[in-house]
Amino acid sequence: MEPEQEQEQEAPAPPSTSPTSTPPLLLPPPPPPSSTSYTLFLTIMSKRRTWVFMFVLVYATLLASSWNSLKSILSWYKHQAQPSSPSSGWPALYASVLLGAVFGLLSMVAALAVAVPATLVTWITIVVLLAFFGKPRRTLVVEGRKITREIASFVFKILLKEGNLVAAVCAVLGYFALVRNNSGE
């Protein structure tokens, strides 16, 4: 064989352009091992029940860590609210307000564990939409800072409202439970 014929035979044939032929199937290389764990992590974190579990876990952790303060409030109340004392309503009021404050703070911190990812997704969505509408980069940075301030203040206001609501409900329920417990003894 001549050298020219060898080169022609070894050269790959160009892909056919006929409508009946199938294009060559190109598969991506398998992902590295760290990438599969990352995708597994992303899959798990995208589930709603994961976030509910995290909310309950954070709330339970905070409640367990503040258990000593709750026990000290209740022991102070038991020490102050003796059946022989005429002003048994005031210690119950003080203790219920403290219990309400503790539960209100706990609910705010637990809600913050859920609000931060939701806020981050909202912020990213808004900034990406602004970028798609053709905002220049400098304007995008300024708008992003404004949006960050507005979202953070909005989330803070909502957390305060919900925390105060939980505190008020827990204080009222705690007061009636403490007064009923004291009158039953």
Score class of each variant (00 low, 15 high):
Leu106Phe: 02
Val169Asp: 02
Thr125Arg: 13
Val166Asp: 04
Leu62Met: 13
Val97Gly: 01
Asn68Trp: 07
Ser107Lys: 03
Thr36Lys: 15
Tyr175Gln: 01
Tyr38Asp: 09
Arg145Cys: 03
Gln7Lys: 12
Pro117Lys: 06
Ala92Thr: 01
Thr119Arg: 08
Leu140Tyr: 00
Trp76Ala: 15
Asn181Gln: 08
Phe133Lys: 07
Val109Trp: 02
Thr17Cys: 13
Leu62Thr: 07
Ala118His: 04
Phe132Asn: 08
Ala11Lys: 15
Val121Cys: 03
Ala118Thr: 07
Ile73Arg: 00
Arg49Gln: 14
Pro14Lys: 05
Gln82Arg: 15
Thr17Ala: 11
Asn68Met: 11
Thr50Phe: 15
Ala64Glu: 06
Val102Met: 05
Ala167Ile: 04
Ser183Leu: 10
Ala131Val: 04
Met45Gln: 15
Glu185Ser: 08
Gly89Asn: 09
Ala101Lys: 02
Thr122Asp: 05
Thr148Val: 02
Trp51Met: 14
Gly163Ile: 05
Tyr77Pro: 10
Glu2Gln: 09
Pro3Asp: 10
Lys78Cys: 11
Pro3Cys: 03
Ser66Ile: 00
Pro24Lys: 08
Thr20Phe: 14
Leu129His: 08
Pro14Ala: 08
Leu26Phe: 13
Pro117Met: 03
Leu173Glu: 01
Ile44His: 13
Pro31Ser: 11
Leu74His: 13
Leu99Glu: 00
Ala115Thr: 02
